[in-house]
Design a protein around this nucleic acid. Structure first.
Ligand SMILES: NC(=O)c1ccc[n+]([C@@H]2O[C@H](COP(=O)([O-])OP(=O)(O)OC[C@H]3O[C@@H](n4cnc5c(N)ncnc54)[C@H](O)[C@@H]3O)[C@@H](O)[C@H]2O)c1
Ligand SMILES: NC(=O)c1ccc[n+]([C@@H]2O[C@H](COP(=O)([O-])OP(=O)(O)OC[C@H]3O[C@@H](n4cnc5c(N)ncnc54)[C@H](O)[C@@H]3O)[C@@H](O)[C@H]2O)c1
Lengths: 216, 216
DNA sequence: ATGTTATTGTGAAAAAAATAACAGCGTTAA
DNA sequence: TTAACGCTGTTATTTTTTTCACAATAACAT
């Protein structure tokens, strides 16, 4: 029924976005929603939404649109790990702490189960109920909790080293905030968040728009 | 010579990445670099790099590759605003503070010139030499410093409101960290950083890889 | 001088992604 | 009961993005 093989990176990103809107609708007791409404909320087109939903194998109703609850359930079944996915975070610095606070506000299907740092001064500290552990305990904690996904928030020059540790501990998904392209084996998926690049993109296009408006 | 019209979002992102590697090479006094080396550092293919560089109008040398300094200069001329671009940040919370620390370590061509918050308890506080100002001063500070780009790090329910303020103050590029799709006029470019979606992507593909490895 | 080598620059081909188009279908209201 | 409506599901088309492939070429050794 579901062909997970053919799904792309981008589609998954959009599905995750649609879900946020559905959550909102559900909280407001809205029962049904049309593709164009979802599209609007995510800044995409309605055929795009229908196409994406099609991949899930979920069918809407031509008169009522999609059933909010049913679609949410379908998305959860598709995107989420049954029983929830525990994530570890390495790097208890400025960004690490912000992320802990952020995740503590999210739904519990995604939760940070442990935080690690190699600075002795930080080990043992607790933020939002999460205690910072020593890197020495990384492999054992990760394996005990069956952790598969790690967030990397250490300085760039420590990132590869840390990623190697993660991979050795059985992690096969990394969200990398450090300014490095990690070298990992093919069975590890890496997603990179590069804020400098994001800002440079905004600067570029903002300037471009400005120039187009002043002299055409 | 340069056709800025045809350039895509993705290309700009890659150019920004290439630049990071070039900076590194330059610091290490490396004079020349081949497309495949740049490609390697950014996790893309070498034809991709050559194609992207082609758009800049810069020409390499078949025997020596690209001249590091010349290419850097070309990139700077293309991506950067002459005289540097000042950026403002709204939201002096966990994420805002992490961002200030992050930008204080970056090259000075991109700098945060002012930070704003609406919490009276935060106004006047200084971090990394940047003082938190009241939202009331937003328009005047932004206009005095000729700011065109803003970073949005306020709670989701305040994001649209804040974006409207930014747009009214003449900003036409926004980096949005809040979990909302902003409604802005067409002359404003918005780039969104959505960490929940990023994590969900990693979780999904990590799980997919796992499943493919255990039962193929 | 000249051959050899490895890389660039770029048109052509392929792949991927987005958009358009429309038949088919519940629902609703006459 | 039936016609009108507006949406979905899906195929076809278009557009965008990436990769391939190779002629052209600068450097260097001989
Ligand atoms: N601060 C931001 O907003 C921001 C944004 C995007 C990306 N980043 C990137 O995220 C990373 C962390 O940023 P930050 O601002 O939190 O830096 P930070 O210096 O505040 O924190 C880094 C933390 O990593 C720890 N660390 C260093 N080496 C380690 C190792 N080998 N193993 C385990 N822990 C180690 C340090 O003890 C420190 O606590 C950097 O690569 C930075 O470029 C930061
Ligand atoms: N913390 C993270 O790592 C992280 C990561 C990604 C995205 N985000 C998003 O970024 C935003 C901020 O996150 P945070 O963790 O810093 O939250 P936070 O609650 O720590 O900080 C929010 C700050 O915004 C200020 N604020 C609220 N309303 C305002 C208004 N109308 N005008 C000006 N300032 C206002 C608050 O006073 C507070 O200082 C949220 O939308 C969050 O979802 C956070």
């Amino acid at each position: 029924m579901i062909n997970r093989d053919k799904i792309s990176d981008k589609t998954i990103g959009r599905l995750s976005q649609y879900r946020r809107f559905l959550n909102l609708l559900h909280e407001n007791k809205v029962k049904n929603v049309f593709s164009y409404q979802i599209a609007n909320s995510a800044g995409v087109t309605s055929p795009q939404v229908r196409r994406d939903v099609m991949l899930l194998g979920y069918n809407g109703n031509p008169a009522k649109g999609y059933n909010v609850e049913a679609l949410m359930e379908c998305l959860a079944h598709y995107l989420d790990t049954p029983g929830g996915e525990g994530v570890v975070l390495v790097g208890f610095g400025n960004l690490g702490r912000a992320l802990i606070s952020y995740f503590s506000k999210q739904r519990p299907n995604l939760s940070i189960v442990a935080v690690f740092d190699n600075d002795p001064a930080l080990i043992g500290r607790v933020i939002h109920g999460v205690r910072c552990c020593s890197m020495e305990d990384f492999a054992s904690v990760a394996q005990q909790n069956n952790v598969r996904v790690g967030i990397l928030a250490v300085p760039a020059d420590q990132a590869q080293l840390t990623a190697d540790l993660m991979v050795a501990a059985g992690i096969n998904g990394i969200l990398n905030f450090a300014l490095t392209t990690l070298q990992v084996p093919p069975h590890v998926y890496v997603e990179r968040v590069d804020i400098t690049t994001s800002v440079e993109k905004v600067v570029f296009f903002a300037r471009k728009i400005r120039q187009e408006r002043t002299l055409p």
